[in-house]
Design a protein around this nucleic acid. Structure first.
Lengths: 335, 335
DNA sequence: TTGAAAGCGCTAACAA
DNA sequence: TTGTTAGCGCTTTCAA
């Protein structure tokens, strides 16, 4: 990389002249400015980002800590963050906590050494089960703002972007009931994280309000989802006519598996799940899905953080929680 | 963040003493070393990464440019990169080119300002169709090494990690033929990128070798995959008994849609596709899939780059191309 | 054993 | 209009 020094030497002027010329300072004469710019272009000069960061004490970089990059929703949020950040001249450093508290702590520590100006993160599963929040508080105390999304810790003072999980499943369940469904099962492979719990509660409330009986099928990490859902359908004591899935794959599998039992979707059974557009194509008929607007969540999180970093927030002691509402997209897996 | 200067002042020693003490220099006396370290710990001192980068002229950061973060395979490669990079003390800055040449160029330019020590990337679709490679060459000329994976440009001199796409579909098609299948269709929604073309060629070779007739169904970005596959099955002139899918969703849809035509999988029709384990669960029966070992690809790419950055490569003028072999995982969508 | 000083690349206050 | 200088936080050479 060519530096100001090299340009200065070649032009027989001082370093600061070159710097000012390139920054279009009024101080520098027309002629010199032109000469400098030409040489800079010729050598494809780019100001050294590291030197700028050191000088200005900010990196224009956001640390993003994500629990699972293979989760479609989380990836899409990451996409939203990246786009919004770029728009404002920020880059992102991504760490994957892999649902581990230890890795989450490490990542936070590692990047809190001047590498980034702030963090956007969603909390790891282990962190949520152990209910650890000190590492977040420490980071904030060190002067690095955090924005949490989706899986948030309510006891940490920071900006947050969340989804209306409770309302989403409450409404979805209600809509199945409105179709005349009586035996509606809730299927979840995320019952150990905050988001999953909220979704279950929304379902429960809707079911109990109608005097129906709740039934929850929990699928663990290493279990075969197809087998578990198959067994659910096999039970003779009651015939399931509705499924609310807390995650994207359970809904898809529930539809595709129903046909093995000669149960027509949506004639005999309705299915609704949280999923992206593309995952909804994996079932025939396509899954009626609750869309979370992941990209928007990411963009909002980035916006909140950048506003704070650039002091565009009103009161710095005031933290906001933005709720991004889900949308129920009807496909052919419901009536 | 607390700095060496602050520690030095508080301890009434010089900055360099503090620096040396913290770096366990032999020069510094036992006593002083202990005092320094204690205070550093108390204040949770962390060396400023930006200052170190400037001083040492390396950032320990890798720029990763990925065409599409919502692609499961690419996300998984990213995961592999991140893990391997972390293991060696590197962080990653992620840019998403979104399949756009312009964005790819921008990202490369943007990070080639001292932000990163080198790049790992997979080429954007637009870049491949327009066959642009100058921006890569420029970057390399500026002293920033590149490692390409999956979608690579053969005319750029750099390390590469690729998949045996041709052999994978060739073998998969052969295995369907060995099952006795005669009317095997190749379905692809990625026929415009290098990888997709290679896969199609592998299929073609196997089909032609057996004197069968190739048939290719191409699905464009905005087309409804379910509709197109439905129409394929509807054609009366020939009854399809085998599907080789170039991507992960086409295979899943092909299985789930077959049942609409009362065609049993795998009795009447066999399906094989490129997919991850989790996507293979989206069809009943599960999709027999060609696994690409994405995480390994990412790890290998990171390893190649880091070796080069740290001069652990033998000859710096010598570039290697590593082929990561696919594995055919048999599930119940084939005999 | 400790400290002073230079320098990484840049900006900006101040001097000329 | 241009140049000198200091300083961002750190390491390292050289001097004390």
């Amino acid at each position: 990389m060519v530096t100001l020094k090299q340009l200065a030497r070649e032009l027989n002027v001082s370093i600061s002249t070159v710097s000012k010329a390139l920054n279009d300072s009024e101080e520098i004469g027309e002629e010199t400015r032109k000469r400098v710019k030409e040489l800079a272009k010729l050598y494809n000069y780019k100001p050294n980002k590291v030197a700028l960061s050191l000088k200005q004490n900010k990196t224009k970089t956001i640390g993003v800590i994500i629990p699972d990059i293979l989760n479609y929703f989380l990836s899409k949020v990451l996409f939203g963050i990246e786009r919004e950040a770029n728009k404002h001249g920020y880059n992102i450093m991504t760490c994957i906590s892999n649902e581990s508290l230890e890795k989450e702590k490490e990542s936070l520590q590692l990047l809190a050494n001047g590498s980034v100006d702030g963090f956007i993160l969603s909390i790891a599963e282990e962190t949520q089960t152990k209910n650890e929040i000190n590492h977040f508080k420490e980071t904030i105390k060190e002067g690095l703002p955090i924005v949490m999304f989706d899986r948030v810790a309510h006891d940490v003072k920071c900006d947050k972007v969340i989804v209306d999980n409770f309302e989403a499943t409450y409404n979805a369940t209600k809509s199945l009931i409105a179709e005349g469904r009586k035996t509606i099962v809730f299927i979840s492979n995320i019952d150990n994280i905050s988001v999953g719990k909220l979704r279950e509660r929304g379902y429960n409330k809707a079911i109990l309000e109608e005097g129906l009986e709740p039934e929850v099928l929990r699928i663990k990490k290493n279990e075969d989802a197809q087998q578990k859902i198959k067994r659910l359908y096999k039970k003779k004591d009651k015939i399931i006519d509705g499924v609310v899935a807390a995650d994207s794959s359970s809904g898809v599998i529930a539809i595709n598996m129903a046909r093995n039992f000669k149960r027509k979707v949506p004639k005999d059974i309705s299915v609704v799940g949280f999923s992206s557009k593309s995952a909804s194509y994996h079932s025939v008929p396509k899954l009626t899905n609750i869309r979370q607007h992941a990209k928007k969540i990411g963009a909002k999180a980035a916006e909140l953080l950048i506003n704070r970093l650039e002091n565009k927030t009103g009161n710095l002691e005031e933290y906001s929680t933005k709720i991004v509402k889900t949308t129920l997209v009807k496909n052919k897996s419901t009536l």
